[in-house]
Design a binder for these strands. Structure first.
Length: 271
DNA sequence: AGAGGTACCTGGCAGC
DNA sequence: TGCTGCCAGGTACCTC
């Protein structure tokens, strides 16, 4: 389940192999992802040179002069680089071949991902236009969460997972960041103090940065490997640990569904 | 405008 | 062993 750290790790893993490379072939075996892969993707992309591999939220943006490929890995997607021919498996939906001979292969068993193309400035694309700030950027200011939360009665966990508020905080890291900040996930977003939002903002940053750092050191191989970043290279304090002792107070970690998502917290340490 | 629910998809697992 | 059924999880989109 790629969360932002996994997407960023993927970006860093594939960029050296496709940057400044020209696309010579695009093979789409299964166009039916979250949205259909454009039928004319090959015509649009072949001949283009990838100038940059960027990331906005959990979208990977492969920019060239003629347009930008927008890739989302959904829940089960991965990208890897092949340096020699490997027969495609049943979930290997797209191969993009470059002048170097390297192939960028998109695999996505559950097909929640996407591969789209835009010729317009990518930040104006409907999927990206309304997104909140990047959690590791200066735009994610200490006051941002507090200001955005006023008047909101929903659970703070749902609030920080809302991409219009801040991007890249998925289900796992929402639980982790709230645990670190000592904030109960069910607390109404509008009833968290400014001081506590400052702490939460820092905890979101710390949690995501640590995970990205772990992604760089965890065993993972984007070249001729499985393309799977080490999701859990970073130890998780509460996520997936319902019933286990809280690292802080030893009381059992609670588990319950919040906003249709499994959520983990310590009812003693988080208020 | 905010909040809640639904859909998309399939591997993996529990239960029979 | 084999079948059925449920669950996970990101996020756009629909409804209230």
């Amino acid at each position: 389940m790629p969360e932002l750290p996994e997407v960023e790790t993927t970006r860093r893993g594939i960029a050296p192999y496709i940057c400044h490379q020209r696309v010579v072939d695009v093979v789409v075996r299964q166009p039916r992802l979250r949205w259909p892969i454009p039928a004319d993707l090959g015509q649009l992309w072949v001949g283009q040179t990838v100038n940059r591999v960027d990331r906005r939220a959990k979208y990977l943006l492969l920019a060239s002069d003629g347009g930008t490929a927008i890739i989302h890995l959904g829940m089960s997607g991965s990208l890897r680089i092949l340096t020699h021919a490997q027969p495609p498996g049943s979930h290997d939906h797209v191969d993009v071949t470059f002048t170097s001979g390297s192939v960028l292969r998109l695999t996505d068993p559950r097909r929640f991902g996407a591969l789209l193309w835009t010729c317009a400035p990518v930040q104006e694309h409907p999927l990206l236009r309304a997104l909140g700030p990047e959690p590791l950027s200066a735009d994610f200011s200490p006051n941002h969460l507090f200001d955005a939360s006023r008047g909101r009665r929903g659970a703070v966990k749902n609030f920080i997972m809302d991409g219009h508020v801040v991007v890249g905080v998925g289900n796992i890291y929402a639980s982790e960041a709230l645990y670190r900040a000592g904030i109960h996930p069910l607390r109404a977003a509008g009833r968290v103090s400014k001081v506590r939002y400052h702490r939460l903002q820092q905890c979101i940053r710390d949690t995501l940065s640590a995970a990205i750092e772990a992604g760089g050191t965890t065993l993972r191989d984007f070249v001729d490997g499985d393309g799977q970043p080490g999701y859990f290279g970073q130890s998780l304090a509460v996520y997936g640990r319902g019933g286990e002792p809280c690292p802080g107070c030893q009381k059992p970690i609670s588990q319950r569904v919040i906003g249709q998502r499994a959520s983990f917290y310590c009812s003693a340490c988080q208020r």
